[in-house]
Computed example of a mutant assay.
Amino acid sequence: MIAVIQRVSQASVSITNQLKGEIDAGFLIFLGITHTDTREDVDWLSRKIVGMRIFSDDDGKMNLDLAAVNGNILLISQFTLHASTKKGNRPSFIDAARPEVAIPIYEAMIAQLSTDLGKPIQTGEFGADMKISLLNDGPVTILIDSKNRI
Rank of each mutant, 00 (worst) to 15 (best):
A25D: 10
L64S: 00
K147A: 09
A97S: 15
P120M: 14
R39D: 14
E40R: 13
H35W: 14
N136M: 00
A128L: 12
A67C: 11
L143E: 11
A68Y: 05
R7G: 03
E22Y: 05
A102T: 09
F55P: 06
A68N: 08
F27E: 01
H35D: 15
S146Q: 09
L81P: 05
R90V: 15
R90F: 10
S77C: 07
S9L: 13
S84G: 14
G26S: 00
R90M: 09
K20S: 12
L134G: 01
L45A: 06
I49E: 01
N70Q: 14
G138Y: 09
Q10H: 09
M1Q: 05
I23E: 00
I94G: 03
R7C: 02
L135C: 12
L75D: 02
G138W: 11
T80S: 12
V140S: 00
G118S: 09
V50D: 01
A67D: 05
D116E: 12
G118F: 03
F126Q: 08
F79S: 05
I121S: 05
S77Y: 05
A83Q: 09
S77N: 11
N89Y: 10
F55V: 00
L113I: 07
F27W: 01
P120R: 07
F30W: 05
A67P: 02
W44L: 08
A25K: 15
H35Y: 12
T36S: 15
I76L: 07
V101G: 02
F93N: 07
D37L: 10
I5F: 02
S114H: 06
S133N: 12
M1C: 07
G138K: 07
S9R: 15
T115A: 12
L135I: 13
I5Y: 03
D95L: 12
N17T: 08
I73M: 00
L134M: 14
E22S: 14
G118L: 08
Q78N: 06
G60V: 09
T85D: 08
L64M: 11
K48A: 08
G71N: 03
E107F: 04
D116V: 05
P91F: 03
I150K: 14
T16M: 12
V13S: 03
D116Q: 07
G127S: 11
P99A: 13
A96T: 09
G32A: 09
T38S: 13
M52L: 15
E107A: 10
G26I: 01
K131M: 10
D58F: 10
T141H: 02
L113V: 04
S77K: 03
I105V: 13
V50P: 01
G127V: 08
K48V: 03
M62S: 10
L135S: 12
I76G: 00
P104G: 10
I132M: 04
H82K: 15
R90Q: 13
I121L: 11
L143V: 14
S12L: 08
H35K: 14
Y106P: 05
R90C: 09
I15K: 00
T85L: 13
I54D: 00
T123E: 02
V50Q: 03
L135P: 05
Q18S: 14
I49H: 03
S77V: 06
I29V: 13
L66R: 03
